[in-house]
Simulated scan of single mutants.
Amino acid sequence: MTDDRVQSFLIGDVEVLRIVEWQGPYVPAADLLPDAGPDVWEAHEAQLVPDHREADGDRAVVALQTWVLRTGGRTVLVDTGVGNGRERPGNPLFHRRQGDFLGRLERAGVRPQDVDVVINTHLHADHVGWNTRDADGEWVPSFPRARYLLPAADDHHFGPAGDYAGGARPVDRLVYEDSVAPVHRAGQADLWQDTYRIDEHLVLEAAPGHTPGSCVLRVESGGERAVFVGDLLHSPVQILRPECSSCFCLDPKEAARTRQRVLERAAEERALVVPAHFGGAGAVQVRAARHGFSLHRWAV
């Protein structure tokens, strides 16, 4: 899905659009999920290839994407991808990237001025990039009318109050300064913690582990449910084996506990699970299984 085709579906009265910034093989599967051995990937090869693992190699396939929700006359974005022109040394895919993401949004009927709410499920580089755009050498909010909902715990951890995540990764300072701080300066940032209700259909809930402020977005409308889980899941392997956290999780054990809890509720409620980075259909229903969970039905 690297062209202008837009996946769409309904959750009750809430319309969902999927805008893909990039999709393809990313990092070796063993690096992405250090606790999932080759036998796990091979045992589930039929479910993973080619949408989640390349057919003739060992790299995991992922997508960089934004989910657009139209609800009650408002337009909501869930995560904003990598962005253009960012200094991201050490990551060739993200570094000084140039793409047509805003054009894709507009061709899907979403102009920047139409966006009412931007949700960052956490503040990693590939979830906040299009928060801002370059305007004559200055980073400004890409969506001039939007309120940006930022997890307070992540804003503290990755921002100056937390010494940009303790200075362990220089890229965290770059990400915050070009993609988060400009939103604060524009007066468009709303920090929240624990839970935050957006409207009658949408509510944010803390889901820590991947980062201190990682969250999920729960959607309920017309008797249907979905949960947008951000980076709780990078691969379907983590549904089949929820104890396997990604190499990007700051607290892998807490991430695993949170993932188990969120998937248990999704299975019980028959909720559609919508991760940030799944290729293929991008979203799936899950069911409880003897070990972990099973992939029940993919979104169309």
Rank of each mutant, 00 (worst) to 15 (best):
V118I: 04
E224G: 03
V171E: 15
D199L: 04
H277L: 10
Q193V: 12
S245Q: 07
P236K: 08
A46W: 00
R18L: 07
G159D: 01
G223A: 07
A256K: 01
L150Y: 14
H291L: 10
G280P: 03
Q23G: 14
L123V: 13
E45H: 06
P141C: 13
F101S: 11
G209I: 00
S221T: 12
A256G: 02
V180P: 04
E177Q: 05
P34C: 02
V219S: 11
R145H: 12
V229Q: 07
F293Y: 14
R241Y: 11
R70Y: 01
V237N: 09
A255K: 05
Y176F: 14
E243T: 03
V219C: 04
L77C: 08
G222S: 03
L233A: 05
V171M: 12
A153M: 12
A267P: 13
T121G: 02
G12D: 09
V237T: 09
E42H: 08
A267Q: 13
Q238M: 03
G137W: 02
P112Q: 09
G73M: 06
L17Q: 10
H156A: 08
P151G: 14
E269H: 07
F94N: 14
L150H: 15
R185F: 08
G282C: 06
R241A: 13
R104V: 14
P34L: 00
F278P: 10
D39T: 14
G73H: 05
D4C: 14
V180I: 13
Q65R: 14
H52R: 08
D194K: 13
